[in-house]
Structures are given as structure tokens and as C-alpha cells.
Design a binder for these strands. Structure first.
Lengths: 208, 208
DNA sequence: TGTGTAAGTAAGTGACTACTTGCATTCCTG
DNA sequence: CAGGAATGCAAGTAGTCACTTACTTACACA
């Protein structure tokens, strides 16, 4: 029973490295330090195991929160972007695998869309509030703006390892740079005093 | 001999559907309408075949060109973005598979980075020229701006099928919307008269 | 007509895969 | 100490995989 969690973690890790077809029950058992038979007794089949592992993964995700009422947009959005890009970077392997398996095995990766959907909804909500406050000089569709920022962050997290010279340097400032670019596109005035990356990271986010 | 091309095409198609491990020589042979043995006689091994198929794919790609001297930034960039997003959408399956296999089989997917690298360089070059012309009211790093636009386009092309409600509607206008947002972030004045999507598509791009 | 080349057929090899069965071991609990 | 549940070990099953060998067929060309 106490092995169950270790098996799930091992399955997720092996899947992130090798994908579904490459995640042999042998490899997962070895990674979990468990006999291969135990897997079948606990989960019934390889597919059931991986389905549960995927579901379990997405449940433990905590996204940074954006305030319902924007006050310092640059700071709030930068913090959110940094936490989002960090989340994606830590899971870039498993995200790539999941996106690849999506077409062939949708039932396995359904839950994968939960996090980006939630993030998009949160961001849209925030941008809409910003617009209602009248702090955006330009007209814009929140959904388009949100897709733009999230897209830039997503592509950075997925592609930087493969092509580091294509993305802005240093890596740690990338989220901030994308965020600033977006705010300028929306015509939002930047009011916050200069804060270093370390300061912003330490001053964690404020909930609604 | 005349089968060689058909085998390469079939291999690429099967790979796009099933990835490396799922691309059995049997499946590829069936898809090509050829005996499995022919594959081994022509290419030696499954890996060699897929390597050649991938290399062959990337060679036939023609990216839209951006002028060396920007004249109508909104129109020129929109055309480029539309051609780029169309390119990615047509190949979204194979791109997902390639990104997924990258870590496990880098020698197979090396060539995959050629197109985005080229696109990034072209776009950076154009944005730098725009900046030099003094047509951007805001200061910006071309590389960051390029990564932002390309990232938004990339994420749209990869993710819209899976989560259509997250991305701006209609699909056909998405590239244009991202482009406009970017130009506003750069403080580039939009001068072009309103053109419909159909017109812009027909008036293909102008080279340097 | 003879020869070389590309293609097909048939059969098989050894390795790996998901999954099963039977039995022994450990350990917790009553 | 007895009984049951979780786990491990050894062996095996049926299927698939990449790849090979040996032989045949079809066609081009001289």
C-alpha cells in the first residue's frame, strides 16, 4: 500500500522520459524499486496505471493567484507569469509527451488541458478587470491578449532548451519581459518602482 | 527506385501519427504500398529511413519573406504571421511528435530546429530595421518581441485543436490579431487601410 | 536470348512486451 | 500464535518488433 504513491511517481517520471510506448512496465517497476507484478496487482494494467498517474499529477498543481482587483498590474502580472513559466519549465518533458500522445490516446491525457484552461481563465478575468478600471489606453480583447502572453511563455518553456539563442536572455527575466511587452500593447501605464527579480520572487502572491 | 519517394512520404506520415516507436516498419510499408523488405533494402534500418524522411521534410519548406526595408509594417508582418501559422498548423502533428522525441533521439530531430531558427532570424532582422527607421515609439529588444509573436503563433497552432475556446476567434484572424498587439507594444503606428483577410492572402509576399 | 537489377514471397530469429499462474516470504493484527 | 493481506520470485504465454536468409518474379537493356 505504501508503494502505491512511489509507483505513481515513477510512472509519471518514466512517461516523461519515454512516452507511453516507451514506458514499459519493466522500466516503471525498476524506477519504483518494485516488482513488476506489484504493478499489475495494484493497477490492473499499464494503461490504468498511467491514467491514474496522469490524473494524480494534475491535481497537485497550484497556480499563482491574480487579485480580483488589479492594483499594480506590472508586479502582479509579472509574478503570475514567473510562476507560470516556472511551472511549465519544471514539467516541460511530460508536457511534450502528453501533447504528442494526445491524438493517439486522448482518454489518457484529457486532464492535461485543465491547467492551461484554468490559467487562461484567470488571466482573462484579470485583464478584463484591468480594462473595466479604465487603465488600458488601448482597446483590446482580453482573450487575445491572454493567448499572446501565455503563448509566449509556453513557447519559451518548451523551446528554450532546444534553441536557447532564439529566446531573450537571461532566462530568469524572460517572463518579466513578455509581461512588460504585453502591458505596453494594452497601453497600461507602469507605475511600480523598480524591483529586482529576487525581491519579486520573495514577495509571494496575494490571493483574492 | 521510383518507390523511394513514396516510402519517405509514407514514413513521415506514419511518424506524424504514431511517433518513432509506433512507426513500425510494417505500418510504413503498408502505407507506402510496398513490401516491408524493400524498406530494409533501400534504407538499411528503420532509424535510417526515419532520419532521411525527417531531413527530406524540412528541405521542402518555403517560408514567407519579409522585406529588408519595412514599408507597411502591419501588412508585411501580418502576411508573414499568417504564412507562419499556416505552416505550423499543417505540420502540427509531426511537430508535436518531433518535440516529444527530441530528448530521446536528438540525432533524428536535429534538422527540426532549422525552420524556427530561420523564422526567428528573419523576424528579428525585420524588427531591427523597423527600430532603426525610428518608427517604433517604444524601446524594445527585437529578440524578445520576435519570441513573443512567434510564441503566440506557435502556441496557437499547437494548442487550438485541443482547446479551441482558449484562443481568439475566428481562427483565420488570429495571426493578424497577434501581430497588431505586438505592433502596439512596439509603438509602431498602423498606417495601412483596412484589408480583408482574403485580400491579404491573395496579395502574396514581396521579397527583398 | 542472356544478364543484372529492383521488387516480391515465405519463413524464421532473437529480443522484448503486457500480462498470468503458482508458490514462498514478510509483516501486521487479533 | 494464527490468519490474512501485501509483496516477491520463477516461470511461462502469446503476441509484436526489427531484421535476416533463401528463393522467385518482372522488367530493362544489350
Amino acid at each position: 500500500m505504501h508503494n502505491r504513491q512511489e509507483i505513481l511517481d515513477a510512472a509519471a517520471q518514466v512517461f516523461a522520459q519515454h512516452g507511453f510506448r516507451g514506458s514499459t512496465t519493466r522500466r516503471i517497476a525498476d524506477a519504483a524499486g518494485v516488482n513488476e507484478i506489484t504493478i499489475f496487482r495494484q493497477f490492473g494494467s499499464k494503461e490504468a496505471l498511467l491514467r491514474e498517474a496522469m490524473k494524480h499529477m494534475t491535481q497537485s498543481v497550484g497556480l499563482a493567484l491574480l487579485p480580483d482587483v488589479p492594483s499594480d498590474p506590472e508586479r502582479e502580472l509579472t509574478l503570475w507569469s514567473e510562476s507560470f513559466i516556472q511551472h511549465l519549465r519544471l514539467r516541460s518533458s511530460i508536457i511534450r509527451k502528453t501533447m504528442s500522445e494526445m491524438e493517439e490516446r486522448p482518454e489518457l491525457s484529457e486532464c492535461a488541458s485543465y491547467v492551461p484552461r484554468q490559467a487562461s481563465a484567470d488571466l482573462c478575468h484579470y485583464l478584463t478587470a484591468l480594462k473595466r478600471q479604465g487603465r488600458a489606453a488601448e482597446k483590446f480583447e482580453p482573450k487575445t491578449a491572454a493567448a499572446m502572453l501565455m503563448g509566449a511563455i509556453f513557447a519559451d518553456a518548451m523551446g528554450r532548451e532546444m534553441m536557447p539563442d532564439v529566446y531573450p536572455q537571461p532566462q530568469e527575466k524572460a517572463a518579466q519581459m513578455y509581461t512588460r511587452l504585453l502591458l505596453r500593447a494594452l497601453g497600461v501605464e507602469i507605475v511600480s518602482r523598480r524591483t529586482t527579480s529576487k525581491q519579486t520572487k520573495r514577495t509571494k502572491q496575494l490571493s483574492a
